[in-house]
Amino acid sequence: MKPNFEQYDDIPGTTIFTIEKAREGFHLNQFCMSLRSEENRTRFLADGPAYLAEWKMTDEQKQAVIDRDFQKMLDLGGNVYFLSKIFASEGLSYVEAVSTMTDMNVEEYQQMMINGGRSVEGWRSKKERGEA
């Protein structure tokens, strides 16, 4: 069966981690995996750029990590479960990190979740939203 990754392009505010994206982000995600050890987390937090220099990532990927720009990391082939190792190393929760990708601050985002989460209405299609 021929893959149809284009079908995901119309979902607003969403980056689907396809096998193609996975290839693009391989070294970025491998760097993230290295943060599963306390020793590596300590080294990374002590000197991020020096730690990143050990990885075959693009300069853009490295900069996105230094900026903690999670959306940018997704755009460059990162996947949130891998990227979670970065924010986990700093003791941040998923809610704290995930909210940075939205237009809300963490308190507003947390309140939205307590109120029942983001409604799917208006969020099904870029075309519907006039974004495409």
Binding site: P12, F70, V98, M101, R118, W123
Partner: peptide, 17 residues
């Protein structure tokens, strides 16, 4: 069940679904 933990659409919940 429903959840999205990435992107501008993060936080999506669809309980009826």
């Amino acid at each position: 069940m429903s959840h999205q933990i990435q992107g501008a659409r993060a936080g999506l919940i669809n309980l009826p679904w």
